[in-house]
């Protein structure tokens, strides 16, 4: 159990560092945008597309790392730790191969598709109060909140990366947003949600 705690602690540290790195990518984007904006017409030149592609390519590797470290793609709530690490390495390996063969968007799309499936399974098991799923924190509402939050984040990223031109893009966006907000509220205020549900 202590070993698992250390493992989770490591994941939290890694997540924090990856989030910090994404923040740095954003700072770079702001500085570079400011530099390019010296020419007021730069957005009508190929430089703009190049800038967008550069920013996406800088962000995507950190997104893959973030998804792995968050335990989104690695179903840490379903599997034992050794299987879990093998699963993570396999997923990462396939992502890297796909990235080299078809580009970073395909690789990211693959890992996001797996994660969406895994999170849906975790959600169903959590709602059914299955003992197969392991959680850090006690309490049904917190667990449900955590799952909703993770699923919402996966759906939002998946939507931004893969479905930007899809006619259902905005509908999918609202689904992800509602899941994230519900997940946040359930995770942060389980006591209040519990007392509200008991009132009924």
């Amino acid at each position: 159990m202590k070993y698992l705690k250390n493992y989770d602690y490591g994941l939290i540290i890694l997540t924090t560092l990856v989030l910090f790195a994404i923040g740095l990518v954003c700072v770079y984007g702001i500085a570079y945008y400011n530099y390019l904006a010296a020419n007021p017409q730069w957005q009508y030149t190929p430089l703009y597309i190049q800038y967008i592609n550069n920013m996406n390519s800088f962000l995507y590797p950190f997104l893959v790392l973030l998804l792995i470290s968050l335990g989104l793609c690695i179903p840490k709530r379903l599997l034992e730790q050794d299987i879990l690490i093998k699963f993570g390495v396999l997923a990462l390996g396939v992502t890297i191969i796909l990235t080299f063969l078809s580009g970073i968007e395909t690789g990211l799309g693959f890992i996001l598709a797996i994660m969406t499936g895994v999170q849906c399974i975790v959600l169903i098991l959590t709602i059914k109060k299955s003992k197969t799923v392991r959680f850090e924190k006690e309490g049904y509402i917190v667990r449900l909140g955590s799952v909703l939050l993770h699923l919402g984040v996966v759906i939002l990223i998946f939507n931004f990366v893969t479905f930007r031109e899809n006619p259902f893009h905005i509908s999918i966006f609202w689904t992800g947003t509602l899941l994230v907000i519900a997940g946040n509220i359930f995770s942060f205020y389980p006591g209040r949600i519990n007392s509200l549900s008991q009132l009924k």
Binding site: I22, G23, C26, V27
Partner: peptide
């Protein structure tokens, strides 16, 4: 990737961290 959007993402990921 407008600067304000980049800044907002930066702020959000830091608060998430």
């Amino acid at each position: 990737w407008d600067p304000k959007i980049s800044g907002s993402i930066m702020m959000w990921v830091l608060y998430t961290a």
